[in-house]
Design a protein around this nucleic acid. Structure first.
Lengths: 316, 316
DNA sequence: TGCACTATTTAGTATAACTTTATAATCGTA
DNA sequence: TACGATTATAAAGTTATACTAAATAGTGCA
């Protein structure tokens, strides 16, 4: 048997509170003999009687009174904690910790988290923005957003966006001055706004395809940033070419502030996904977050269709 | 069954503290499946998972962490109350935890503990052998054996042995080959079997007195041990000189296997004492241990007197 | 003094908890 | 990338514990 430090306490407390074994047995829903045996076993374990009893009266000994006075508050604490834990069962509450790449902030997080907080004020949300691939369980996260379809087993991926078409963009003013690159090799004669990964410190190589084969380029650049938003804003300022996901510059393109170049050479990859451990998906806080996210992204798809935009399917 | 408000808590606490079901099952002394079932039943009762687990990792959920933080102090209170109640019983029961230096094992522990266990089978005795000075209360010990008379407040010391006369001893064969040191300085031309304290890693300096003034020597030696028994057995094997308490080599001296040298220079210190908190001495388990110890050491003194040996007084 | 009621003990039974075995999953290392 | 070692869990069977029923002894009140 699992050694039970509480063995006999329930019976002891019931007898002490009702002042009798028969009353205690009625309260506990068992026979008087069961209560008698349980208390007797506890007394044997302690090596001292807890009650003085006649067939007509039950009185706590000094040791029993002392034990009761110390144990009763602690038992009440435990009962309260268990009740609270049980109450947490149905309503989402507690902490929801997410790790997300910076790109996901304007696309997903800025929209979903306010809606989620509004719908579930009992849940504290923590968003850790980082562009490194994160070990969810090891770092204590409940879920994460990632580019591309994760292949880690026992993880579930929920698509949050359509596929990403990568883009090289520049301001019209930049192109007027420096010309328009026609092939990836032309980039050697241009200014690139480079991206450095915060975690690893590596510079992001620009990736292309030619006739189905991958091609990687390290273009020259005198601007290096570690923030995706700066890639976009510096490009708009005419400071160079940026390599970004098309979904990050949709508005700038529509407004004519940024222009795509090298389109025939740019790849497409799966978009943003929400990942979480399969075992965790039964948790109310996570289910609630997924539900809110789906509803919001479905609304966005309806909006996008009305703008005649191509939308990727949302998958469960 | 008596409804048990604590059902599953022991298993839950064990898993939370050990961070795994297998480790928890080892601690509780049951199979991993039993722990898994107990926790699962508690989770079902609460309607919420307490752990997120893979086969390789176990992590508390937010609910589980909250439950743990609330339950753990209450459980500790209950354990303390039960232990106190048990200590106050007339029949000694529960745990008696002792910390003792290795030297005390052959002299005291080997004799007293079997007798005590025989007389009081209801008490579980734990003996921690270590040569470091131990904080009794901080480490959860009921009593400890120490060389010398403790002056810590609220502690009571019961003498267990007569004063210790320290000795430098060697086998006759060693002395025949290497000569007999006449002064502590002569040790520089001898082989010492050194003692290293396991806890601190410090080498034990050999302490002498000359004309009432202390004198400390670091003799050279190519044998270093952290076990007192090895000091004696290596000395018997003629491997060098050992610095030991005379009570540790009484039999070897009587048998002529070891010879004392440098006697005029060796100090005497108070012997072995049993120490315990003053407020604990009313506890039956501790009173019983003291009684058994006194009886046994008194018997030993009668034995020793019949051998015409000098015995130190036993003090309370 | 007698009766009603309670606590306890004992023997038997039922149920709960545990074990064993097999399986699936995970993580680390080669 | 694949394989092996280790862990968690589920299911079925077994064992041990806790409970019940019945009998007995004791107590307190009318």
């Amino acid at each position: 048997m699992i050694p039970d430090p509480f063995s006999g306490l329930a019976a002891f407390l019931a007898v002490a509170e009702t002042r009798g074994f028969t009353a205690a047995s009625a309260r506990l829903g068992v026979s008087p003999a069961a209560v008698s045996q349980a208390v007797k076993a506890l007394e044997a374990k302690l090596g001292t009687p807890l009650f003085v009893r006649t067939t007509r009266r039950v009185r706590l000994t000094e040791t029993g009174a002392d034990l009761l006075s110390r144990v009763a508050p602690a038992v009440a604490d435990i009962a309260g904690a268990i009740e609270t834990a049980g109450a947490m069962g149905d309503e989402p509450s507690g902490f929801l910790r997410l790790t997300v790449p910076r790109m996901a902030v304007p696309l997903i997080i800025d929209r979903v988290v306010p809606a989620f907080r509004h719908a579930h004020p009992g849940v504290t949300v923590e968003v850790a923005v980082e562009d490194a691939t994160v070990d969810l369980l090891g770092r204590g996260f409940d879920a994460g957003i990632r580019i591309g379809e994760y292949v880690e087993r026992d993880m579930v991926g929920v698509r949050l966006s359509r596929d990403i078409v990568w883009s090289v963009v520049a301001a019209p003013s930049y192109l007027a001055t420096h010309g328009r690159p026609a092939t990836p090799e032309d980039l050697t004669r241009h200014e690139a706004i480079r991206y450095r990964f915060p975690a690893s410190g590596a510079l992001y190589r620009w990736e292309f395809e030619r006739e189905g084969r991958p091609l990687s380029v390290d273009p020259p650049g005198k601007l290096i940033v570690n923030d995706g938003a700066l890639l976009v804003s510096f490009a708009k300022a005419g400071l160079g070419l940026s390599y970004v996901a098309d979904i990050a510059v949709e508005q700038e393109q529509r407004a004519g502030l940024l222009v795509r170049v090298l389109e025939p050479y740019l790849p497409t990859t799966p978009g943003l996904f929400l990942y979480f451990p399969q075992r965790a998906q039964a948790q109310p806080k996570l289910r609630a977050f997924i539900d809110v996210t789906r509803k919001l992204l479905r609304l966005r798809r309806i909006e996008a269709k009305s703008h005649h935009a191509a939308i990727g399917e949302l998958k469960g």
